[in-house]
Every structure is written in structure tokens, then in C-alpha cells.
């Protein structure tokens, strides 16, 4: 009986170490946004990068604000997000080395087919938002400091609506990712601002459809930043930089442009576009 117990402990210990010890040799951690993951982009491009470089990319998907925080703490090697002003502040604060534009897509305003605010087909996003607020039609906000959330707030601001005016039963802040916001909008028959990629990849649409698109203010730029190894010595600068270099190389750019859902391109590569 004593022997049995010793054997059991040994077995458990072996099991424990086996579970923890399987780490591939070369990897980087990228903190990115929910949109890049939820849209399926990474599933498409990461195997190509791995085949080329042998580097495993581990993506932690969070809202842009949270993703930048993860980089700030040194828990990621590269951040890949979409909120230019926040990215520039990240660099200015010394947490990032350099920001490289990678690609863009656009935001779309999603709403129920019944369209209670009567804005379907509008081309002016700001006017459409004003109408939603005036009619107190249900609107779902990410409320999670993500890039999409930042873009939404900036659009409201342009519409002259901020602070107290964004309180009330019609405006629902859910503090969750894009997918969750779309699910909520579907359940509430509400409006929601989404990046086009996540929308195209979203399956549980119910009564939702695009109501406003094409306004140039809905443009959504993605950038990639190497976390500053001077701040966090653990940052894998070489492999992280290799990933960034690949993303903006012709090969990486082509891989991004090739990713389509139902024949539709989700992200438009624009690494060479000045000032993007």
C-alpha cells in the first residue's frame, strides 16, 4: 500500500511535467485585436509565415487598448492594432520601436433590416448616428477601449454627441469583443459599428445587415509595432522584427490581400502608402 502510493505520486509528477514541458523552440507573442482573429486573417497568413521563417506566432486577441497594455507590460513581442493616435502615443511613451502601416479595411454600420431609425442606404455616417440618437434607436457599443470603440467614439464626437448624451437605455456599452457586440445587436435588433472583416466572417447574423458604408470617415487603418526591447529585455526583437518585415514585404502583403470570404477581400494591404 505504501508502494502503491509512491508509484501514484511518481506517475502524477511525470504527468505534470509532461504537460508543462512541451514548448516549441521558436515563437513570438503578438497581441492583436479581436477583428484580425475573429475575421480568420491570422488562420490564413500565420501558416505561410511559419513555413517561411520557422517562427510560431502566438496571437492573443484583445481590444486595441488592452493589446497595447499587454505590449506596455512586456507580455507581447509585437502589437498589431488599429487606432493610430493610440499607437503613436505608445511609441512616444517609449514602449514601441516604430509603427509600420500594414493594411486597412473599413467600418460598416450594421443594423436590423426593420431599420427603426430609417437610415438604410445613407452615405453620411455622422448624419446617420445623429438620427439614431434623436430617435433613441438601440445602439450597441463595444465599450472596451478597442480600436473599433475608439473609432465609434470619434464618430459620435464628430456628430457633436458625447458625454451625457451617450447615456440612456438606447446606448448599450457591453465591454466585450466585436463578435459579442454583433451577437448583442442581433438579439436587441440594434445598430452597431463593426469592422467589415469581422462582419463578413460573422455567422449568426439573424436580422442584421449593413445599413451605412462607404463614408471615407469609416476608413480603418491597421499598424504593427515591435515592443521596445530597451524597455523589456525579454522581447524577442529579432523574431518580432522578422514577422513585421514579412507583413510589409510584398509576399506578406500579397498573403493579406489574398484572404477573401465569399470572394470579398477583407483587408487591403497598404504598407507602401505614405502616411497610412
Amino acid at each position: 500500500m505504501f508502494n502503491r502510493r509512491i508509484v501514484l505520486s511518481l506517475a502524477l509528477a511525470t504527468f505534470a511535467s509532461a504537460a508543462v514541458a512541451q514548448t516549441p523552440e521558436r515563437f513570438i507573442v503578438v497581441s492583436s485585436t479581436t477583428s484580425t482573429t475573429d475575421s480568420g486573417l491570422f488562420n490564413h497568413i500565420l501558416p505561410l509565415f511559419k513555413a517561411k521563417s520557422g517562427i510560431d506566432v502566438r496571437v492573443v486577441s484583445q481590444g486595441t487598448g488592452q493589446a497595447l497594455d499587454t505590449g506596455r507590460r512586456g507580455d507581447a513581442d509585437v502589437v498589431f492594432v488599429h487606432a493610430k493616435p493610440q499607437e503613436e502615443k505608445f511609441i512616444a511613451d517609449g514602449f514601441g520601436v516604430e509603427r509600420k502601416p500594414v493594411m486597412y479595411n473599413d467600418f460598416v454600420l450594421i443594423g436590423p433590416k426593420s431599420d427603426p431609425a430609417g437610415i438604410k442606404g445613407a452615405t453620411d455616417i455622422v448624419a446617420a448616428l445623429k438620427t439614431i440618437q434623436t430617435k433613441q434607436a438601440p445602439f450597441v457599443s463595444r465599450g472596451d477601449k478597442s480600436g473599433t470603440h475608439a473609432a465609434e467614439l470619434s464618430l459620435w464626437k464628430t456628430a457633436g454627441i458625447e458625454g451625457e448624451q451617450l447615456k440612456g437605455a438606447w446606448y448599450r456599452e457591453i465591454g466585450q469583443g466585436m463578435g459579442a457586440a454583433l451577437n448583442t445587436a442581433s438579439a436587441l435588433n440594434g445598430y452597431v459599428l463593426s469592422d467589415r472583416a469581422t462582419w463578413l466572417n460573422f455567422k449568426n447574423r439573424g436580422e442584421l445587415a449593413i445599413v451605412v458604408e462607404g463614408d471615407k470617415r469609416l476608413f480603418n487603418q491597421y499598424g504593427v509595432i515591435l515592443v521596445n526591447p530597451a524597455k523589456h529585455t525579454n522581447v524577442k526583437a529579432k523574431d518580432g522584427q522578422a514577422f513585421i518585415d514579412w507583413l510589409i514585404s510584398p509576399e506578406g502583403q500579397k498573403a493579406i490581400g489574398d484572404y477573401k470570404i465569399n470572394g470579398e477581400v477583407l483587408f487591403f494591404p497598404n504598407a507602401q502608402q505614405p502616411g497610412a
Binding site: 475573429d38 463578435g179 455567422k203
Partner: peptide, 8 residues
């Protein structure tokens, strides 16, 4: 994650 993507 899959629920949030609507992949039921």
C-alpha cells in the same frame, strides 16, 4: 470565442 464569432 466561437460563440462570439457566431460559429455555433
Amino acid at each position: 470565442l466561437e460563440t462570439s464569432k457566431g460559429d455555433l
